[in-house]
Write a protein that binds this DNA or RNA. Structure first.
Lengths: 346, 346
DNA sequence: TTAAAATATTATTACGATATAATATAATTA
DNA sequence: TAATTATATTATATCGTAATAATATTTTAA
């Protein structure tokens, strides 16, 4: 089988524990024997067994990832590969690996995380999205297991290290931008309401309107999935009103693309008839016709910082709870213009 | 600490080995004691320790993933989240987890895989792309470690289980489609030439032209990265010719998008002036303006089958080498038309 | 009724490392 | 030089489970 620490010990004429110390580069071993042992390790092609090491040291150097249950969203929305890139970078820089379990239902995912945690497969966990009343969060808190949330936790904000944008303010800014162009009928198309990010952006949108002294029109607020289809469906819903807003704040680029497509099919042009601001600023925002004005939330950094701060927490249990706010920026393109009419009647 | 098999044994008044047998549902334990032990496990909230189990059984129930070194491509090209979805589904159905190490350079990745393999962290490995002269393939073959390649292996095809499309034929078909429309000046924009998929598609393209009795024009073949920027750059390169082909076969949707953008900026319209067929049929193909005719290669299935066949190989070492060909389909949209001129002179 | 066979359970070892306690050796001090 | 301290190395226990070998118990057959 594979060459073990014992084989090295035998070949180098030292005790296994000495070899172990050499691997850990313990100062209690003389340079001379270190050299000797290292030489033998190289000769025999020794590689430490992670599993055995994990068992003995009670640490795996692996981070568990919890993805949302909807495979569609994970595999279609560019948000995920980008955070994954950031996570991967952050983990790699500290020599941690990423470990994923998946499940089709909420229950399967929950069970997967439980067995990952209790089974000692990972040293910590990152939740890639923050959900309202997430039982996983309660579980992890209860277990006092290291974890970090990407997004704003629904409750216990002070006890949970998280990496987030100021989505409230971002949405307020974005709405203000539309207001500044002269729009007064502004719709909001958000994601699932059990996602905290949706709630935050909605609140920011409402605040901006209220500050501007404009009424909140319930019918102008639509929720659907963070997918292109979600955007299309949102437009369908608005159509029923027979009166479209002149601008829309869309909580996701992919949704915005759906909105764009649906409007296009209806012969409604952007930005002449309707202005659109969306969120995330992924590649599709730039490629859409017209290119979308979008709030860049620095997705990569969300992942990167999440990995970093989780590792800090793993390596130092006394590490204080942190809240890391990643900056955002409104990237202006050509999906917004001054309104031509007050409202758009069909 | 966590409750172990010993705690359960003590509480149930049986030996630890009996508990282990109950977990494995061994027929050598009576139903009566099984019930008793299970009851206790539930009461104590027992969860098996994966690490200890892995060490004893020499199996981890984890699959290692090897992503390409370019983080850009992984995080930007929709191919990856989609395969990942398939992999994840396939692994999950057999209760396997996914494990990823990453690296910035080829060497780091190689080292990551070696330590994953030798360190016993995973039971098998999936290579998400097939590269020309990939040292990883040599290494894994040498080690006789279970692995599956997504794509066609560069050599030793008969010894390596792989999941692939018939990219040669797909490219030939796609080219024939353009030929059937009347195009005679057809360019090829492919990815990096050290990717086997690029080579295969290029060969298919060339075969189609040769079969049609058309000359192969070197200047019409360009290679760049599987990114939008790659597409833009390819167009730049073609521009230098002062004579554009009337149709282009682009090996990736994202690249095609770049091509589209670049052409748009030049005032060249698709499909009136130039027809485009691309590969992958990811969401962007449908959303591009104009929507792209693209070869759907069923990315999800590539991942799903790869995971399935790797697991088969892991669980039965005598499993024969397999070659799994996932079907493709040319999805016609509006990026192709009959040529208006023989060549496009700038 | 007893020996043999089948069934059920337990004791022990192994997996490959780390960590702690125990020694051996070298260096320092009195 | 002996006693003490510092340094280097080794022996042993441990992590939590699975697998194999060893018993104990029950059932069947003679």
């Amino acid at each position: 089988m594979a060459v073990t620490i014992k084989d090295v010990a035998k070949a180098a004429n030292v005790a296994p524990s000495t070899v172990s110390r050499v691997i850990a580069n313990s100062p209690r071993i003389s340079e001379k024997t270190k050299e000797k042992v290292r030489e033998v390790m190289k000769q025999l092609g020794y590689h430490p067994n992670f599993i055995a090491r994990s068992l003995a040291s009670q640490a795996t150097r692996a981070i568990g990832l919890v993805l949302p249950s909807s495979t569609d969203i994970v595999s279609q929305n560019p948000f995920f590969p980008i955070v994954l890139g950031g996570l991967s970078d952050g983990a790699h820089s500290k020599q941690y690996a990423l470990h994923m379990t998946t499940g089709k239902t909420e229950e399967e995912i929950f069970e997967g995380v439980v067995s990952m945690v209790q089974g000692g497969r990972v040293d910590g966990v990152i939740l890639l999205s923050s959900r309202v009343e997430d039982p996983l969060v309660s579980y992890l808190l209860e277990q006092d297991f290291p974890f970090v949330v990407i997004g704003k936790p629904f409750k216990n904000v002070e006890q949970i290290t998280h990496v987030d944008n100021d989505n409230f303010k971002a949405a307020k800014d974005a709405t203000n931008y539309l207001l500044s162009l002269g729009h007064e009928q502004i719709g909001f198309i958000g994601g699932n309401l059990n996602l905290v990010v949706t709630v935050e952006r909605l609140l920011g949108y409402e605040k901006a309107l209220r500050d501007a002294g404009l009424p909140l029109i319930n019918e102008y607020v639509i929720h659907d999935e963070f997918l292109r289809e979600g955007g299309r469906e949102a437009v369908q819903a608005l159509l029923a009103l027979k009166k479209l807003p002149t601008a829309m704040l869309v909580a996701d680029d992919l949704m915005a693309l759906g909105v764009l497509n649906a409007l296009d099919e209806l012969g409604i042009s952007v930005p002449e008839d309707v202005s659109i601001v969306s969120f995330n600023n992924v590649l599709v925002a730039e490629m859409a016709r017209p290119p979308l004005t979008s709030v860049d939330i620095n997705i990569f950094d969300l992942g990167y910082e999440a990995a970093k701060s989780l590792i800090q927490k793993i390596e130092n249990p006394k590490e204080p709870t942190k809240r890391i706010i990643i900056p955002y920026e409104l990237v202006k393109r050509s999906s917004c213009a001054k309104p031509t009419k007050k409202t758009l009647t069909l």
